[in-house]
């Protein structure tokens, strides 16, 4: 089936099997391998991207469902060599270790801050309930998002 969509500002059109997930489409067809797969049950959040501006789990969306949509992945967040403030904050506050959950965490953080520019620690933790990190204990991820919020609001 033919789909066309915008990913990170670029227009794409491809023939895909209906059963192809949006994650597979991004990774296998567009070679955007920053979006990861960590589970089978929409639980881990490693595959999080923005679909028409909101965070979704791309492993649970068929590429055909995204036909006509706008997708932003981790690769589309930085402006050239300038990291997005959330990316910058993760770097500054050691919000990542192995890096595998990181793209999903960052994309989810974008959604959290879009909806709530000044979240409390509790609100950030609640906002991350759909993302597993096995390395950081979340401590520095939460701190990174707090600092990103400050920076964005400054």
């Amino acid at each position: 089936m033919k789909i066309s969509l915008t990913v990170n500002g670029k227009q794409y059109a491809h023939e895909v099997e209906p059963r192809m997930s949006l994650t597979h489409y991004l990774r296998e067809v567009l070679n955007l391998t920053g979006t990861h797969i960590g589970c089978d049950t929409s639980s881990c959040g490693a595959c999080t991207v923005l679909l028409d501006g909101v965070a979704v789990k791309s492993c649970t969306i068929l590429a055909v469902q995204a036909d006509g949509c706008e997708v932003t992945t981790i690769e589309g967040l930085a402006q050239g060599s300038d990291l997005h403030p959330i990316q910058e904050a993760f770097r500054e506050h050691h919000g990542l270790q192995c890096g595998f959950c990181t793209p999903g965490m960052v994309m989810t953080a974008v959604d959290i801050l879009q909806n709530n520019p000044n979240p409390s620690e509790e609100e950030i933790r609640h906002g991350l309930e759909g993302n597993f990190c096995r390395c950081t204990g979340y401590h520095n991820i939460v701190k990174s998002i707090q600092h990103a919020a400050e920076k964005i609001n400054a």
């Binding site: 070679n31 920053g34 797969i37 992945t73 990316q87 890096g99």
Partner: peptide
């Protein structure tokens, strides 16, 4: 010193090289 990690930028921009990212 708490030197910021050299590896972070690739992970934060989706440029990590995990095995499943490799296509031959």
């Amino acid at each position: 010193k708490s030197v910021k990690r050299k590896e972070d930028v690739r992970f934060l921009t989706g440029k990590g090289r995990y095995t499943d990212d490799i296509k031959l």
